[in-house]
């Protein structure tokens, strides 16, 4: 879908200098971001996940934190620790990297389940309680987690219930030949990435998130979303269908999608075009279908749902 919102358009233009040919991935990330959701990128290493996260942080003028997940990563490494201060005689809380606006969690499936759930809980609640004290996470708060689908040894794949907490799951994929040629000619632009001038500030981001939220969602489109949920729940292929969080995510991303297209109402296509990113990671296939392509089956089920018009 064509992006018509002027500022979003500029962001995509600016960042695609660093992510040649990946406008679609950029757009999807931005939709998630402005829908106040979190993003899961399932991809091989070295395809620009970090670039995407840093670029997003820079251009919106937000703070950026990075967590490299390993099997010995502890929850306190993410959240922060209380350290005894000799001078005051009190414990002082030292905030971890999660207290940033945009947090990149690299290879989240390498972290132990304990650490994973600490992180995911923080994502869901948008606040952290340590030793009886509650700390609010900054606003906006956007987590980009990445997952390496190939390496399985020594990893802890995210359980389905945890996947549900991500609004969208995307993959960036290999660049096209032309794009890669351009990349090779230009060399690494990592240095340049850090010098991007922000084109908006925190206030503006919050305002745009609010505006996206206010996009009108017609009863007809709501019925359509309910049909989608119904289809996943009653399908013989799935042992678990969409959760309520799932339908909410569909509605929210649909609104933001409409907002990006310069509309103040949602059309079914807003919803439909995002289904490949909002639904597949939330439904659980029956054991017998486990070896088939997950996304394929989900889309074949959703494809048949009549669109209201």
């Amino acid at each position: 879908m064509e992006v018509k919102h002027p500022q979003i358009k500029r962001i995509i233009q600016e960042l695609s200098r660093f992510l040649q040919g990946k406008e679609e991935a950029l757009r999807l990330s931005l939709i998630t971001f402005f829908s106040r959701g979190h993003l899961l990128i399932e991809d091989l290493p070295g395809l620009g996940k970090t670039t995407l996260a840093i670029g997003l942080a820079r251009i919106t003028g937000l703070s950026f934190g990075r967590i490299q997940a390993t099997s010995d990563l502890l929850p306190s490494d993410i959240i922060g620790v209380s350290i005894y201060n000799k001078e005051t005689g009190k414990f002082e809380f030292h905030k971890g990297p999660i207290f940033n606006n945009i947090v990149l969690v690299d290879e989240i499936n390498r972290a132990t389940p304990k650490t994973q759930s600490a992180l995911l809980e923080a994502m869901g609640e948008k606040q952290i309680t340590v030793e009886g004290e509650t700390y609010k996470l900054p606003e906006p708060f956007f987590v980009i987690a990445t997952q390496n689908p190939v390496e399985q040894y020594g990893t802890f794949p995210l359980p389905e219930s945890q996947m549900d907490r991500f609004m969208m799951k995307i993959s960036i994929g290999y660049p096209s030949r032309e794009a890669e040629r351009e990349i090779l000619k230009g060399g690494s632009k990592r240095e340049e990435l850090y010098s991007i001038q922000p084109i908006m500030d925190r206030q503006q981001v919050l305002k745009m998130q609010e505006e996206a939220e206010k996009v009108y969602l017609s009863d007809k489109v709501i019925e359509y979303i309910l049909d989608i949920a119904e289809a996943t729940r009653s399908s013989k292929y799935f042992s678990a269908g969409l959760s309520i969080r799932g339908t909410l995510a569909i509605a929210k991303t649909g609104k933001t999608n409409a907002y990006f297209s310069g509309r103040d109402y949602v059309i079914p296509e807003d919803i439909k075009s995002l289904l490949p990113y909002t639904v597949p990671h939330r439904v659980v296939l029956h054991e017998i279908y486990e070896n088939t392509d997950h996304q394929e089956i989900v889309l074949s089920v959703l494809e048949k749902i009549p669109v209201p018009a």
Binding site: I267, P268, E269, K272, E303, K304, V307, A309
Partner: peptide, 10 residues
């Protein structure tokens, strides 16, 4: 002919 599962714009 519009298919049932097609949106208008689509």
């Amino acid at each position: 002919k519009k298919k049932e599962n097609q949106g208008l714009e689509e």
